[in-house]
Design a binder for these strands. Structure first.
Length: 261
DNA sequence: ATGGCGCGGTCACCGCGA
């Protein structure tokens, strides 16, 4: 079973890119973020023609939006309204093998890393705090927590640790909460675990660089965390850097894990 | 030190991303 996560930055604009990736990599379940459309405009039927018969889609106009498209049956579809808002930043599904998947789109947090000065940063911090308590309260499930967390947690998850310490996504406030999430949820950062600590790993490169590959000012903002009780099922982890080179790409790239249950 | 680009939409400017 191969599961991927990808911040697609508009599903309507990039549905062909998604299909190309799904076919090439033989993905069973794709979890998308920033779909940026209401459910009625989501290309649900289009993905069914490629075998993704099962889905859980939760979108809104223009902003946010999460979706899970699957070849395998989904059961117990649900979502939680984080920060008591109606924005579309979370869905949860359960598979027939009892593994649950949470798909998250965490708020970006604006420019100023101060909850008193910047309501967007406060929203981000409140969201993560609630994520920690929400996930802690789900007991003893086999879980995969994935999506765009908008946090680059470790030194080699950014192109320059020094330059980004005061930049939202890599501040100590955020990275400490990420580590708290791992600890309290008893989660493994399976992507980081598959690399050496000193390896630079990125999942996002800004559109604003002339040559993203040459400047390589990336960050690892997208994550796949797994509960420790399914660590033994993990057979492979992949990051698809070449996808950033496609025509009209998303600024994020997909990541996948392969499980044998 | 700043700005760079790209998305959707009350659509040519604006809010937002990070």
């Amino acid at each position: 079973m191969k599961i991927a996560t990808w911040n697609i930055n508009s599903i309507r604009l990039r549905k062909e890119n998604v299909v190309r990736f799904l076919k090439k990599e033989n993905i069973d379940i794709i979890c998308l973020q920033e779909t940026k459309t209401v459910n009625e405009y989501f290309p649900t039927e289009f993905f069914k023609t490629y075998g993704y018969m099962h889905n859980f889609i939760r979108g809104e106009k223009s902003y946010n939006g999460v979706a899970i498209l699957s070849k395998l049956p989904l059961r117990k579809k649900s979502f939680h309204k984080f920060c008591n808002l109606n924005d579309t930043r979370h869905i949860k599904i359960e598979l027939q093998n009892n593994i649950t998947i949470h798909n998250f789109y965490v708020p970006a947090g604006g420019d100023v890393a101060d909850i008193k000065l910047n309501p967007k940063f406060k929203h981000k911090i409140d969201f993560i705090k609630e994520m920690i308590s929400f996930l802690k309260n789900e007991s003893f499930q086999k879980r995969i927590i994935l999506g765009d967390f908008n946090i680059a947690p470790f030194e080699n998850d950014v192109w320059s640790h020094k330059s980004l310490l005061n930049v939202v996504s890599h501040t100590k406030i955020e990275t400490a909460y990420f580590e708290k999430l791992l600890k309290q949820g008893i989660f493994v950062d399976i992507v980081r675990k598959n690399f050496k600590n000193q390896d630079k790993i990125f999942s996002w490169w800004s559109y604003r660089n002339k040559d993203w590959k040459k400047s390589n000012r990336g960050r690892r903002l997208d994550h796949i965390l797994i509960s420790k009780n399914i660590l033994k099922y993990v057979k492979n982890v992949k990051i698809y850097k070449s996808v950033r080179d496609e025509n009209k790409p998303s600024d994020h790239i997909p990541i996948s894990i392969t499980l044998e249950t």
